[in-house]
Simulated assay, not measured.
Amino acid sequence: MSEVAPALRVQDLCLSFAGVKTLQSVSFDVPTGALASLIGPNGAGKTSLVNCLTGYYRPDSGRIEALGRNLTGLRPDRVARAGIVRTYQNVGLFGGLSVADNLLAGRHLRMRSGLLAGGLSLPWCTREELAEREVVEDLLALLEIGHLRTVPAGRLPYGLQKRVELGRALAMEPALLLLDEPMAGMNLGEKRDMVRLIRGARDRGVTVLLIEHDMSVVMGVSDVVAVLDFGHLIAYGPPDQVSHDPAVVAAYLGVDDAEPVR
């Protein structure tokens, strides 16, 4: 594993807004093929970091390398084309479109036909769409929602909407998948299902960086964990090591001599 270049390398990343330092010299790696987690108290800088990784924010300084490329300061569309895909804290599905069409929207990045060709229903364009719908059917089966393919996404319960959102991200064929609180607002059963699906994505060769507040989930699924607090990286390593780190315990509980974070 050590001989393989990391899927993601963050080096001395700094970000500020109007003089307020949001990220301060943050550095860590995500090993290729790993399921890594990024954690920290509210306001620690987690989402700001993901926004830098995906091109929504331009860092003040530092370097972002992913999948063998320097992605520092690239536009979001170029980051996505490089194989880095994200989901968001809030559900952002097309509520009036079917579940299948929401996943098909994720395939747009991989399709060659344009608006004009699609509007004219040219033969090669039709063949491409049929091929892409086969990919969507495979994803529906993977996510165990094939029976919902024709249901408008906006009519689904919240937990299933989050599953569709994961499917749309997977439809883009990411090499590195950034999941921003994919289990927020879920009940225990929905969380278990989502954990299983995320592990399934990792098993299919996708490197995953998970932002999550549920420590039982983080400590149970992660290969490595990075911890932010007030824009600083205060810990990085295997879950057991991080959960016993005094700086992590203090950041979460506000005390220096407490039980490990679980």
Rank of each mutant, 00 (worst) to 15 (best):
E3G: 04
A5Q: 02
P6H: 05
D12S: 06
C14I: 11
S16F: 09
S16P: 03
F17I: 14
F17P: 01
V20E: 13
V20C: 01
Q24E: 14
V26M: 06
V26C: 08
D29A: 02
V30W: 00
V30L: 00
P31I: 15
G33Q: 11
A34D: 06
S37A: 13
L38R: 02
L38H: 01
I39Q: 02
I39L: 00
P41S: 06
G43S: 09
L49Q: 01
N51K: 05
N51D: 05
L53P: 00
Y57F: 14
D60H: 06
S61Y: 11
G62H: 06
E65T: 14
G68S: 14
R69N: 07
R69K: 07
L71C: 02
L74H: 04
D77E: 13
R81P: 00
A82T: 11
A82D: 06
R86D: 08
R86S: 04
Y88W: 15
N90S: 14
N90F: 11
L93F: 03
G95S: 09
G95V: 06
G96R: 14
D101V: 09
L104C: 01
L104Q: 04
L109D: 04
R110F: 05
M111L: 04
R112A: 07
G114K: 07
G114R: 04
A117T: 15
A117H: 08
S121C: 07
S121T: 11
S121E: 10
P123W: 08
W124H: 13
C125T: 15
T126F: 05
E129I: 15
E132R: 14
R133K: 15
A141D: 11
E144H: 07
G146F: 10
G146Q: 15
L148Q: 02
R149Y: 08
R149I: 13
P152F: 14
P152E: 09
R155A: 08
P157A: 07
G159H: 06
R163N: 02
R163L: 07
L166W: 14
A171P: 01
E173N: 02
E173C: 01
A175M: 08
L177Y: 09
L178W: 04
E181P: 01
M183V: 13
M183A: 05
M183K: 02
A184Y: 09
G185Y: 13
G185T: 12
M186I: 15
G189A: 06
D193I: 13
R196C: 01
R196I: 08
R196G: 06
L197C: 05
A201E: 04
D203F: 00
V208N: 01
I211D: 04
S216D: 15
S216E: 15
M219N: 01
M219L: 04
V221M: 02
D223I: 10
V225T: 12
A226F: 04
L228K: 12
L228Y: 09
L228Q: 08
D229W: 11
G231P: 03
H232G: 03
L233N: 03
I234L: 03
D240W: 05
D245E: 03
A247R: 13
V249G: 00
V249N: 03
G254L: 06
D256I: 12
E259Y: 12
E259M: 14
E259F: 12
P260D: 14
V261I: 15
V261A: 04
R262N: 10
